[in-house]
Amino acid sequence: MADLTNSLFFDGPVVLPTGGPLYLQLKRWIEDAINKGAISPGDALPSERDLALKVDVSRVTVRKAVLQLVQDGVLVQRHGSGTFVAPQPQRVEQSLSQLTSFTEDMARRGMAVRSEWLDRGLYLPSPEETVILGLSPGEHVSRIARLRLTGDTPLAIERASLSARVLPDPAVVSDSLYKLLERSGNRPIRAIQRIRAANLGAEDADLLQVAPGSASLNIERTSYLASGRVIEFTRSIYRGDTYDFVAELRIGDTPSNGAAKP
């Protein structure tokens, strides 16, 4: 463990970043120390009292700064032990130019992944599912929802909907949904994805083991067969601190109106 008396409390007065409330200045100072490697993942933060004395601020200010960093996932508090720099999860880079399943994408990176099932069942479709999947009156929808993990680190929550005609028994899905669909001749060949930034609600944050309000990437994917029929509608929530989405752009590759053709 690093000697934080020397690494964080270097000789000389502490100069906080300027601008904003004092607790946010202290928050940015601690973040900067972590980013520069002055303190590392797993290192204990000095006590609230020591920080307040060194930085010459109140303990209330220290407490507010630390609480913000805990909510952001930068620090973790362990009852009876203190406050520590949180482990930094491995970031995953995913291409937006290929249509692959989560399992296939992680396998190409040599990463072992597993799933924890949240739901598998047949349901009456919502109005949105009826329209997107083109369901007829009386048809049911198969829903599968799972938490995706590598080791003990949760990466994403996936919630997929398919027509019950395509997937009459959701319980047969084991690892890769796309591999199962390929065996029945129903693997999609293209998809439209919409990505937006969002803050996690309490339930999803708990599943992803981050603080409520943490950043996430929400992705809606509508997948198509070669015939143009929609085969799958998926909503996924990715941890913002683990995923980078990358797209290669080339001049002349898009339609003249700039929109994807259905």
Rank of each mutant, 00 (worst) to 15 (best):
V66T: 13
Q88A: 08
I39C: 09
Q77D: 00
T18C: 02
Q68V: 10
T18Y: 00
Q88V: 12
V74M: 05
Q90E: 14
R63Q: 14
R63Y: 03
V55G: 09
V55F: 15
P87N: 02
Q25R: 14
G73M: 02
S95H: 11
E93W: 11
G82V: 10
P17F: 00
T18Q: 04
G20M: 08
P13G: 02
N35D: 13
G12F: 06
Y23K: 08
A52C: 09
D43R: 02
L22D: 04
G12W: 00
R59P: 07
D72F: 03
E104N: 02
G80M: 12
Q98I: 14
F102A: 14
D105I: 09
K54M: 09
F10T: 05
L24H: 10
D105A: 15
S101T: 06
N35Y: 00
G73I: 01
T5I: 03
S97W: 04
A38M: 07
P17K: 03
D11G: 08
N6K: 13
P46H: 04
T5H: 07
E48V: 15
Q88G: 06
T83W: 01
D43C: 03
D50Q: 13
T100N: 13
L45Q: 04
Y23A: 14
A52H: 08
P87L: 03
V70W: 05
K54W: 04
V15L: 12
G12R: 01
E48I: 15
T83Y: 00
G73C: 04
L67F: 06
D11Y: 13
L26T: 10
P41W: 10
S40N: 11
D72C: 04
A52M: 12
L69S: 11
P46C: 03
A44R: 15
V85P: 06
A65S: 12
T5Y: 04
R78F: 03
A86D: 04
A65Y: 08
L96Y: 02
L26R: 11
V70N: 05
P89K: 06
N35S: 12
V70A: 04
Y23F: 12
S81D: 12
L26N: 07
H79Q: 09
V66L: 11
Q98M: 08
L99A: 01
R91E: 13
S101V: 01
R63V: 05
L16D: 09
K36G: 02
T61W: 09
D32E: 07
V14N: 10
R59W: 06
E31Q: 10
L67Q: 14
S58M: 08
T83R: 09
S101H: 01
E93Q: 15
S7F: 03
Q68D: 15
S58V: 01
T61Q: 08
L51R: 05
D50R: 08
F9M: 12
Q94R: 15
G37A: 01
T5E: 12
L67Y: 10
S81V: 09
L69Y: 03
Q25D: 02
G37W: 01
L16K: 03
D50P: 00
E104F: 00
F84W: 07
G37L: 06
T18D: 07
L99Y: 03
A38W: 10
V76D: 14
L45F: 11
Q25A: 03
P21N: 01
P13M: 06
R91H: 11
P87Y: 04
A52T: 14
T103Q: 13
